[in-house]
């Protein structure tokens, strides 16, 4: 990559797949990432995995963050991963947040999710992890 790209802000898509309407967590994370200098594309509520994959590609994001509180994470997150692979976009790392039991978190990581943030994770930790996953640790 050319030198100029280093100074470009990290672009992150924050999306909430599925039907739960609790987007406070997603908004708090979006805001923390913004305050850390990132460009956050906030996709909002009730996105289908296909919509998320599409947005990730068209917005050319460095990462995708998925927030799920409905318990449907083992259903929805693998579908996003699969969709990205189908679009030759599996280079885009995916992280997840929400109420996700440890066992599921391990399984998701085996499937390729780069990080899973449970309730109570500090915003600093999330920001640092996102930077490091994007390959731009400070």
């Amino acid at each position: 990559m050319p030198k100029a790209s280093k100074s470009a802000p990290i672009r992150v898509l924050i999306a909430k797949p599925g039907l739960d309407g609790h987007d406070r967590g997603a908004k708090v994370v979006a805001r923390a990432l913004r305050d850390a200098g990132m460009e956050v594309i906030y996709a909002g509520l009730r996105q289908t995995p296909a919509e998320i994959v599409r947005a990730a590609i068209e917005e050319d994001v460095d990462l995708v963050g998925l927030s799920i509180l409905s318990g449907a994470h083992m259903e929805l997150i693998p579908r996003v991963l699969k969709g990205l692979r189908a679009e030759h976009a599996s280079r885009i790392p995916v992280f997840a947040g929400g109420i996700i039991p440890d066992e599921d978190a391990r399984r998701l990581k085996r499937l390729g999710v780069r990080a899973v943030f449970g309730p109570g994770t500090s915003l600093e930790t999330i920001v640092e992890s996102v930077r490091s996953i994007a390959g731009r640790s400070s």
């Binding site: 979006a30 913004r34 850390a36 906030y42 996709a43 909002g44 919509e51």
Partner: peptide, 21 residues
């Protein structure tokens, strides 16, 4: 808008349309 302080930005709610995949 980008923040004049952090340079960061929240873009959206992203435009949503019902479209065929």
């Amino acid at each position: 808008p980008s923040s004049p302080f952090s340079g960061g930005s929240v873009l959206g709610d992203r435009i949503r349309i019902e479209r065929e995949d």
